[in-house]
Amino acid sequence: MHNTAFPPSNPSLTARILQDPLNPFHCYRQLREQHPVYYSREFHSWFISRYEDVQNVINDPVLFSSEQSIRSRPKATRQNSNAARTLLWTDPPRHRQLRSLINLAFTPRTIANLAPRITEIVHAQLDQVTPYGEIDIVADLANPLPIIVIAELLGVPIQDQQQFKHWSDIIVSPARQEKKQAVIAMNNYFQSIVQQRRQQPEDDLISALLSAHIEGIYLTEAEILSFCRLLLVAGHETSTNLIGNALLTFAEHPHVFEELKDDLTLIPDAIEEVIRYRTPIQRLRRAATVDTELGGQMIKAGDIVSPILGSANRDEQRFVDAERFDLHRNPNRHIGFGHGIHFCIGSSLARLETRIALEVLLTRFTGMQRKPDSKLEHVASSFVYGVKSLPMTFEN
């Protein structure tokens, strides 16, 4: 432990986030108003809660490094030092090179071309529950949809989708040793697929990643494996929780269901407001590279800094009536998918899956509401916001 002179702190302020992860927003407001740069002993990091500060941190990889934030983790939780970092954990200039190469394969056209297949998957999932008048939004739709899409996009057997979900759930959980084993298992799995595609390319993303190059520079195998891991985990968790959070929020605001059903063109705006109101990825992780002052606090080199996207998106200095869900909010410059060089590379896929899921749900079903006896339980993660289950009733 370094010798940082931490500010006086009430441990219960951030401990309450752990105690009530479904409602961290009151604590966020206290942080913004009283301790905008606050050292959390529970999370072993500086919580950055105001919009402007959060944006400044995530936009400055020189002062606040993604790569060094991983190096500072306990040895047992780090990936193999010989393994390539994902886009999340690299800094410029290598981050820029990686992203440029990946963008050659993971193109807007690739994403847009998935729309018909996503629509088929959503209808197929809803067909299974239509006779019963009940659906668990998470188990029956939000979980399987992105897993199936990612499996098909990567070109891996669909029968492995439950294994994908298992790995993804472990990696976003606090279970350190299990997380390490899951990363190893994922690497081994994807390595065999990559080797197959080297011998026999197919029309899938892994084959495209293998062939992508800029001026003779190709992605290494380790970098391809790291992107497969990132797409599986981040792509699954973001889409699953965005869909679940949308339905949870609409159930709390029944008039939104009616407005959207009357005018499906409002769905994209509704999705953006859900991203702001219930941000799927609540916080990020950076490391200070040098001693620096922020919000009146001295942050030492090597200290972990946690920009809280979920707090920034409810900052009253940026959003009018920030605690209210407003379907017609304009402007809505949230940072729910990050900002700058680390803007979520899979955000367009998450938006597309969520838009199509909502369009089909609102077209096929009426009278959707949460089952009154259902209890909400937060997913097993301190940085993802979502529920494990969301039973709802509907009429055909």
Rank of each mutant, 00 (worst) to 15 (best):
V305L: 09
L101G: 00
V290G: 03
H26A: 13
S49A: 11
Q125F: 14
M1E: 12
A322K: 00
L232H: 02
D321M: 01
A357C: 14
N10E: 13
V37F: 01
A288P: 08
E178D: 10
I206N: 03
L22W: 04
I184P: 03
A222L: 04
I243S: 09
R364V: 07
S81V: 12
M298I: 14
L361N: 03
I147W: 00
V156F: 03
H342V: 09
N188A: 14
S382V: 11
Q159P: 00
H236F: 15
Q369D: 09
F25L: 02
L247W: 15
F343G: 10
P8I: 07
L376D: 09
M1H: 15
G235L: 08
Y38P: 08
Q97A: 13
V62C: 03
K375Q: 15
W46G: 02
V360S: 05
L104K: 13
S374E: 13
P7V: 03
L22M: 03
W46V: 05
T354N: 07
I271E: 05
Q68Y: 06
P174G: 09
Q195N: 12
L104S: 01
R109Y: 12
T130Y: 11
E215D: 15
N241S: 05
D53S: 00
E395N: 15
Q163R: 14
A105W: 08
H342Y: 14
I299C: 12
C228Y: 07
H342R: 07
Y385V: 06
I17M: 05
E67C: 13
E353A: 03
I135E: 02
N113Y: 08
L232Y: 08
S226E: 05
A288C: 05
E134C: 10
L266D: 10
Q177V: 08
L219F: 07
P254N: 04
I171D: 04
T354S: 09
L18Q: 10
F190H: 06
Y277H: 14
N187K: 04
I243Y: 02
T249P: 14
I58N: 00
E258N: 11
N241L: 04
M186L: 10
L22I: 08
H378L: 07
K179P: 01
V194E: 04
E252V: 06
P74W: 01
N103K: 12
K165Y: 10
I341Q: 08
D321A: 06
F337E: 11
M368A: 01
L219C: 07
T393N: 08
I148Y: 02
T292A: 03
A246N: 05
T14M: 05
Y218S: 09
N188H: 14
L327P: 09
L18S: 10
Y385N: 13
R41S: 12
G302Y: 01
E152T: 04
R329G: 09
K375T: 15
M1R: 15
M1G: 14
L209K: 10
L225C: 12
A301D: 04
T119P: 00
W167I: 05
D140S: 12
V37C: 07
A208V: 02
